[in-house]
Design a protein around this nucleic acid. Structure first.
Length: 224
DNA sequence: CCAGACGTTGTT
DNA sequence: GTCTGG
DNA sequence: CCAGACGTTGTT
DNA sequence: GTCTGG
C-alpha cells in the first residue's frame, strides 16, 4: 500500500510533467522537502495541465461530509473504474504524485520497524493518482496494485509507479477508456530498493532527514 | 421505486 | 475497539 | 500510515 | 453522482 511517503524538492521533475502537454505552463510552486507525509496532509500533484496541492484522501465531489476522505488515501487499481467513489475521477481527473520513496512497516517482536522503498536509481518516482474537487478544494488518492517481487516480503500491495513512457497517457484527460488505462496500472517494473529506517518515522511529527536514511543498529528493532 | 452507501488495509 | 490529528 | 485519545457537568 | 439492496 502507500500510507506514508517522502518527497525531496524536485522542481525539475514537476516541470517535466507540466511540459508533457507542450503548453508552455511554468511551475508556480516549489513543494518543499518533507520526509514524513501522512494522509490528510496537503501533497503536490500534477494533472489537468497544472501543478497543485491536494489533501491526501479523496473527497468525491458529491460527498456530504469531508470525513469520507479519511480512508480514501489509496484506490485499488483493480476496481478503480468501477467504484462510485473513484470512477469519475479515474476517467477524467488523473494526476501524478511525485515521491522520493514510501514507507512500509514490518511487525517485529520489538515493535513496528519502518522500511523506506525507493527507486534504485534514486530518481523521483511518479505515483499514479486521481483527484477531485470538493467545496473548492482539491483532494487526491494514490492508486495501488499488487506488490512486485522486490517489495513483496514487506507488503502485498504497492503504489502504482508509472513508467515514464506512460506519463503522458495517464495525464491525458481526453482519454477516458478504462481499457487503455488499465495496462499502465501494473506493479513497478523499475528496480526498487528497500531498507530499514529510524523507528522515529513511526511518529508522523518527525519530519527529519533520518526518516529516509538507513537506520543505525540502535534504531532497528529485531528484524523478522 | 426509495434509501443508503460510496473505501482500503489487515485480520479473523 | 474506534475515532481523530498529523 | 501511526500515535494517541476516547466524557460530562459544573466550577474556577 | 451512481450503485446496491430491499
Amino acid at each position: 500500500m502507500c500510507g506514508r511517503f517522502a518527497l525531496e524538492s524536485d522542481a525539475m521533475f514537476l516541470q517535466r510533467l507540466l511540459d508533457l502537454r507542450g503548453g508552455g505552463v511554468n511551475l508556480d510552486m516549489d513543494p518543499k522537502t518533507r520526509y514524513n507525509i501522512a494522509p490528510s496532509q496537503l501533497i503536490a500533484a500534477v494533472g489537468s495541465g497544472r501543478a497543485f496541492m491536494a489533501r491526501w484522501g479523496l473527497i468525491p465531489r458529491w460527498a456530504a461530509d469531508a470525513r469520507i476522505g479519511r480512508r480514501m488515501f489509496n484506490a485499488r487499481a483493480e476496481t478503480l473504474f468501477d467504484k462510485p467513489s473513484f470512477r469519475e475521477s479515474a476517467r477524467r481527473r488523473r494526476c501524478i504524485v511525485p515521491m522520493t520513496g514510501y514507507y512500509e512497516w514490518s511487525e517485529t517482536p520489538g515493535g513496528k520497524q519502518p522500511y523506506f522503498i525507493r527507486r534504485a536509481d534514486r530518481q523521483t518516482a511518479a505515483a499514479a493518482g486521481i483527484w477531485d474537487e470538493w467545496q473548492g478544494k482539491e483532494s487526491c488518492a494514490v492508486v495501488t496494485t499488487e506488490a512486485n517481487a522486490a517489495v513483496q516480503r514487506l507488503h502485498h500491495r504497492m503504489p502504482v509507479l508509472l513508467e515514464e513512457e506512460h506519463w503522458e497517457l495517464w495525464l491525458n484527460d481526453s482519454v477516458e477508456e478504462p481499457s487503455l488505462l488499465r495496462p499502465l496500472l501494473k506493479p513497478s517494473g523499475a528496480d526498487l530498493e528497500a531498507y530499514p529506517v529510524s523507528r522515529r518515522v513511526n511518529s508522523p511529527v518527525n519530519d527529519a532527514r533520518e526518516c529516509m536514511e538507513p537506520a543505525g543498529e540502535s534504531d532497528q528493532g529485531e528484524l523478522f
